[in-house]
Amino acid sequence: MTTVTGMKCACESCLCVVSTNDAVEKDGKYYCGEACANNHADGKGCSHQGCSCG
């Protein structure tokens, strides 16, 4: 059995790869942070270096 510990953030335009242990889980999907998990409701991106989602 293989355990997945890292995956791409579920936000479509996000480039981040997150650990399933550290991710924000919402609706069964994993996100790199609250901004992505909340579909950028405040208009801000995740602010991780090299990522321009939002």
Score class of each variant (00 low, 15 high):
Met1Asn: 04
Thr2Trp: 06
Thr2Val: 11
Thr3Ile: 15
Thr3Lys: 14
Val4Tyr: 00
Val4Pro: 00
Thr5Gln: 11
Lys8Gly: 04
Lys8Asp: 15
Lys8Val: 07
Ala10Thr: 01
Cys11Pro: 00
Cys11Val: 02
Cys11Met: 08
Glu12Met: 11
Cys16Asn: 14
Val18Arg: 01
Ser19Ile: 01
Ser19Phe: 04
Ser19Thr: 10
Asn21Arg: 10
Asp22Gly: 00
Asp22Arg: 07
Ala23Trp: 01
Val24Phe: 09
Val24Pro: 00
Glu25Ser: 05
Lys26Ala: 08
Lys26Ile: 12
Asp27Gly: 02
Asp27Ile: 02
Asp27Pro: 04
Asp27Leu: 14
Gly28Phe: 04
Gly28His: 02
Lys29Ser: 11
Lys29Gln: 14
Tyr30Gly: 01
Tyr30Phe: 15
Gly33Gln: 02
Gly33Lys: 08
Ala35Met: 09
Ala35Ser: 13
Asn38Pro: 01
Asn38Gly: 01
Ala41Trp: 08
Ala41Glu: 14
Ala41Asp: 13
Asp42Lys: 11
Asp42Leu: 14
Asp42Val: 12
Gly43Gln: 05
Lys44Arg: 11
Cys46Phe: 07
Cys46Val: 09
Cys46Thr: 06
Ser47Asn: 14
Ser47Gln: 06
Gln49Leu: 11
Gly50Met: 01
Cys51Ser: 03
Cys51Phe: 03
Cys51Met: 07
Ser52Leu: 08
Ser52Glu: 11
Ser52Met: 12
Cys53Met: 00
Gly54Phe: 03
Gly54Leu: 06
